Simulated scan of single mutants.
Amino acid sequence: MAASCHEVEVPGKPTETGTALLEAATGSIQGFGPVNQIHQHLCAFHFYAGDMTRQVEAHHFCAHLNEDMRQCLIFDGPDAGARLIGVDSNM
């Protein structure tokens, strides 16, 4: 069975109100040019290295840099709570 971002708790205490407010304020004045280039979402299952009996659901969010190069951020789910689990560049 595939692992999901909802099955594992992230260590650490919950985000405090002051931190959330700071993130909201800075997010409104900062640029996200590289992230805004992402325009493709692919979902696949990948096997664990060294244990072909286990697999993980992987959501690739990709940007095409040119006709031959694609860069992807890989998350363990499609939702806002998903964790970054990899980065991939393909030619």
Rank of each mutant, 00 (worst) to 15 (best):
Q37I: 01
N90H: 14
H64A: 14
G31I: 04
A2V: 12
N66G: 05
S4G: 06
V8F: 12
V8M: 10
E16S: 02
V35A: 05
M91T: 14
E9F: 07
E9D: 13
Q55E: 14
L73Q: 12
A80I: 11
A44Q: 09
Q40C: 04
N36A: 09
H39V: 05
C72Y: 08
H60F: 14
Q37T: 12
S89E: 11
T53D: 15
H39I: 01
I29E: 02
C5S: 11
L65M: 09
E67W: 04
A25R: 04
M1L: 07
I38W: 00
N66T: 08
S89K: 07
A58M: 14
I85E: 00
N66L: 05
H46A: 05
C5M: 10
L84C: 02
P78S: 14
A63V: 14
H60S: 10
T53Y: 09
Q55K: 14
H60Y: 15
F75H: 10
A24F: 02
H41P: 00
S28M: 08
Q55L: 14
Q30A: 10
Q71Y: 07
L42M: 08
Q71F: 12
T17P: 00
V10D: 08
S89T: 14
G27F: 03
L21V: 08
T19S: 02
V35F: 07
S4A: 02
G33I: 09
V8A: 10
H46Q: 06
A49R: 05
L22C: 06
E7S: 13
E9N: 09
A58G: 09
R70F: 04
P11T: 04
G31C: 06
T26V: 13
P14C: 03
E16K: 05
L65N: 09
A20S: 03
H6Q: 14
A20C: 02
A20K: 02
L73Y: 13
A3V: 11
F32L: 07
